[in-house]
Computed example of a mutant assay.
Amino acid sequence: MDGKARIRGNIATYLGLTVVFCLMPYYWCIHTGTLAGGYSPAGFSLMLMWGPALAAFTTCRIRKIPLDELGWNWRPTKYQWLAYGVPILYSAGAYIVIWSTGRGGFYKEEFVAKVAKGFGWSLPDGVVIVLFTLLAGTFGMARSMSSALGEEIGWRGFLTPQLAKLHSYTATSLWMGLVWSLYHYPILLFSNYNLGGSKWFAMACFTVMVFAMCFVLTWLRIKSGSLWTGAVLHASHNLFIQSIFTPLTVDTGSTNYYIDEFGVGVPLATVIVAIYFWRRRHELPEGKIPAPTAVV
């Protein structure tokens, strides 16, 4: 078997196993109509997000691929900081435009009051927002990473390097965008992974965002040689959009069409960032990812 045929076999095995490991969580999410359920408030979604990791580990065992090829090295740390900051940049930019144009309001007093009550604070709303953002953006990353890591071991740890051995950076990013979008469609269309508006509109916005994110994630994975860039970016993205910016936003009538992952704001901002990274594709070694280094 030649090298390319073996790589294609690795990819086919991985994708097949991902479907197998995700079937039961998909069933529960669709049958109950919610991602929250089972043994914890995030039980179904957590099981679904760890399906790609289980598929990666199993594929490595079956295809005799060393686990260190998944990219466990943390350094160079500068790429982890970049991965953390990029989602803040594009999500904050999108929400600032939304708030300033009245497509959504800033800020939801009920949410701030709930946060203040939860912490036992008697502070001005502005101080509560700042303190909550700082705490969520630091300690909250641990919880967000626990779920994002499951997907990223599979998507950026295993699949991206395999695709990069066959394709250019651009083609690898597009293939990853397709796979990652398809992975989300069952819960987007048949469960409650949306804001409650038009599911087809939400799917279109979400797809644009995912494809754009993959250009950033693929660039970081190839440049750094680390799957942790994907885990950090994914966790930061989920945290700031789902736990901070969206809850702070007041619905002014058609706000759902502009906010979160299912409105036009974040996808458009992400496309701008994706174009920036795509223009830096010449910095990447085509078809090659830096060799794994020790975990430090």
Rank of each mutant, 00 (worst) to 15 (best):
M1H: 07
G3E: 14
T13P: 01
Y14R: 06
G16C: 08
L23H: 04
M24F: 12
M24S: 08
Y27Q: 08
C29F: 03
T32S: 13
T34H: 09
L35G: 03
L35H: 02
S40F: 14
P41N: 07
F44C: 02
F44E: 03
S45K: 10
M47I: 06
M49N: 13
M49C: 11
P52W: 11
A53M: 10
L54G: 05
F57H: 05
F57Y: 15
C60P: 01
C60W: 03
I65A: 05
L67H: 03
L70F: 13
G71A: 10
R75L: 08
T77Q: 01
L82M: 13
A83S: 15
V86Y: 06
V86H: 05
P87F: 06
P87D: 06
I88H: 15
I88Y: 15
L89K: 12
L89R: 09
G93Q: 00
G93W: 00
A94K: 06
Y95I: 09
I96H: 00
V97M: 12
I98N: 04
I98W: 00
S100H: 05
T101K: 07
T101C: 04
G102Y: 09
R103K: 11
K117H: 08
F119P: 01
D125Q: 03
V128W: 07
L131K: 13
F132Y: 14
F132H: 15
A142F: 15
M145R: 01
M145Y: 10
S146W: 07
S147L: 13
A148W: 00
G150A: 08
E152L: 10
W155I: 00
G157L: 09
F158T: 02
S168F: 04
A171Q: 05
W175G: 01
L178N: 02
W180M: 08
I187Q: 10
L189R: 03
S191I: 09
Y193W: 11
Y193V: 10
G196V: 11
S198M: 03
S198E: 07
W200L: 14
F201G: 02
A202K: 10
C205V: 00
F206T: 02
V208F: 12
V208A: 15
M209D: 03
V210K: 02
M213E: 04
C214S: 11
L217D: 04
L220V: 08
R221E: 04
R221A: 08
R221G: 09
T229C: 15
V232I: 15
V232A: 10
H234D: 11
N238R: 07
I244S: 04
P247G: 08
N256C: 00
Y258W: 14
D260A: 14
E261W: 13
P285M: 12
